[in-house]
Computed example of a mutant assay.
Amino acid sequence: MIRTALTGLLGVEHPIVGFNRSPAVVVEVSRAGGFGVLAAVSYTAAELDAQLHWISEQLDGRPYGVDLLVPERTADVDADREDLVAALRAQLPPGHLAFVDDLLERYGIPKVPADPGRDAIAAGMSRRGADAQLDVVFAHRPALVANALGTAPPHLVERAHAAGTAVAALVGTRRHAERQLAAGVDVLVAQGTEAGGHTGTIATTVLTPEIVGVAGDRPVLAAGGIASGDQMAAALALGAAGVWCGSVWLSSVEDVAPESVKRKFLAAGSGDTVRSPARTGKPARQLRSAYHDAWDAPGAPAPLPMPLQPLLTLQAWSSIDAAADAGNPGAQELQSFFVGQVVGAFTELRGAGEITRTMARDCEARIAALSGLVRDGAAR
Results as ranks from 00 to 15, higher is better:
V343M: 02
D131A: 13
G108F: 10
V100H: 11
L9C: 10
L52W: 01
P93G: 08
A223P: 05
F346E: 06
P15F: 11
A87P: 00
V253I: 14
S42Q: 13
A160L: 08
A302H: 07
S319L: 06
R73E: 12
K264I: 04
V137S: 07
L287M: 08
L334D: 09
L88N: 02
P258I: 07
L370Y: 04
G129C: 05
E333L: 14
S371K: 13
I121E: 01
I2Y: 02
L311N: 03
I211A: 06
G117M: 13
V243E: 04
E28R: 07
R361L: 12
E82H: 04
E47S: 11
G224F: 02
A227N: 04
R89S: 09
M359T: 11
I121Y: 05
S228M: 06
R118K: 15
I2N: 05
P283G: 05
T193N: 13
K282I: 09
F35R: 06
M125L: 15
H53Y: 00
V12R: 05
P15M: 11
A379R: 12
V185K: 11
V26H: 00
A278Q: 01
H161V: 11
A365E: 12
E259F: 00
F19A: 09
R288P: 00
D325S: 15
P298F: 06
L188G: 02
S371A: 15
G11S: 10
C363H: 05
G372P: 00
Q180Y: 12
A257Q: 05
A326D: 15
I355P: 01
H96F: 04
L103H: 03
I355R: 03
P154T: 15
E158Q: 15
A40E: 04
A234W: 05
H14A: 15
L238T: 05
S247N: 12
